[in-house]
Design a protein around this nucleic acid. Structure first.
Lengths: 200, 200
DNA sequence: TCCAAAATAGAGTAAATACTCTAATAAAAA
DNA sequence: TTTTTATTAGAGTATTTACTCTATTTTGGA
């Protein structure tokens, strides 16, 4: 059975996803859980600390998804798609973050700092990841160096905003829609995929 | 000189952009403007009506940007870039909307309905717009029909989320960054651009 | 000039929010 | 067992928020 602290994070995440952070008060969270506000504040200094803790959980799960399988791993599109798929699933779990990030960072400078650090790290990691695919001859890029950054940025954006985009279109998110998101990224990379390397 | 009603919308927009809608109360807006709350509520039924009015203004400006210049207009990349540039500028002016849309729609079902209608309309318009470019031989697409929708979706997403993406990266938005956003979209279209048609 | 309608001021309020404080209970350690 | 520490309950509070109400002023037309 989960400890109170973990239960708060879990329930808060669900409620934030459903109603948005500003509509969900600490009192709401406590009463939904059937605990007292005193208890909730025993575990968390304030609402922002709850949000920051959720962020840290998300970061941990994200890191697991994106770690390179092993040192002798051969980059291929099937694995890439699997990773993108898992990233989409994480976004689903922590939807509110992707929706409200900018405002949340405005309200909480600590979260802002933390996010900025993480984001910078990830950018570097992803670039290295991408390089694997070029070195592994799965992707073949023009001499123009800048194109790597550009493609990476676009892929990142699709990966980050596809679900939000669906939401603004009032489409509900199904496994099928996630595959469509993967497809979008593949379309961007398509012109640069080397048909000889990796399995499509 | 602007009427009170217009001034409220203008000031509210600025404040929402700076601090986020949930941090800006109707009292804040009134006092920033140096008017009474009574006065503000004389012009607007509630806070949501303010937000909806701002949305309508944004829609109007957007429509001006995207109307096809004239019936005998020849599609070309220079004009396309100009339109994208103006769209980015609109996003800058109404930043808070792009950041908070999903939550705002959750809070206000009227806004949600309205946005959904507008969004659907625009999708159709943009598709027609895109078709101009194909018919005008500026773009050449593979027989695969689905690719049109895919490219359109990706372009739309970049156009809608590029500035938000920059914000999460803590980069401030300059004219230069806007050009970079245009470049992103062009990179996506690049493999399908017919070098003979239109001027790059 | 007069008057009805439009615009404004500003005091007032119910509800909600984030959080504190103290006392009680449960769990762990000695 | 006893004692210390970790949890929990729940009443209480200062502040804020969205919004109302009434009285006053301004404005534009007849």
């Amino acid at each position: 059975m989960l400890k109170t602290k973990e239960k708060v994070l879990e329930t808060a995440t669900l409620m934030f996803n459903q109603e948005g952070t500003s509509s969900v008060s600490t009192n709401h969270i406590a009463s939904r859980l059937g605990i007292s506000t005193g208890n909730l504040y025993y575990h968390f200094k304030n609402k922002e600390e709850i949000i920051r803790s959720i962020f840290e959980k998300m970061v941990q799960e994200w890191d697991i998804v994106w770690q390179v399988p092993s040192s002798d791993w051969q980059p291929n599109l099937v694995d890439l798609k699997a990773i993108i798929r898992q990233t989409f699933q994480l976004q689903l779990k922590y939807q509110f973050f992707y929706r409200e990030l900018i405002v949340l960072m405005k309200i909480d400078p600590l979260l802002k700092d933390r996010h900025q650090k993480i984001q910078a790290q990830r950018m570097t990691e992803q670039k290295r990841f991408f390089q694997h695919f070029i070195n592994g001859d799965v992707l073949r890029l023009p001499h123009d160096e800048a194109i790597i950054d550009t493609l990476l940025t676009i892929s990142w954006m699709i990966n980050n905003y596809w679900l939000a985009f669906l939401e603004t279109n009032n489409e509900d998110i199904s496994a099928d829609k996630i595959e469509q998101g993967i497809q979008l990224i593949m379309t961007v990379l398509e012109p640069y995929i080397n048909r000889d390397g990796g399995i499509t």
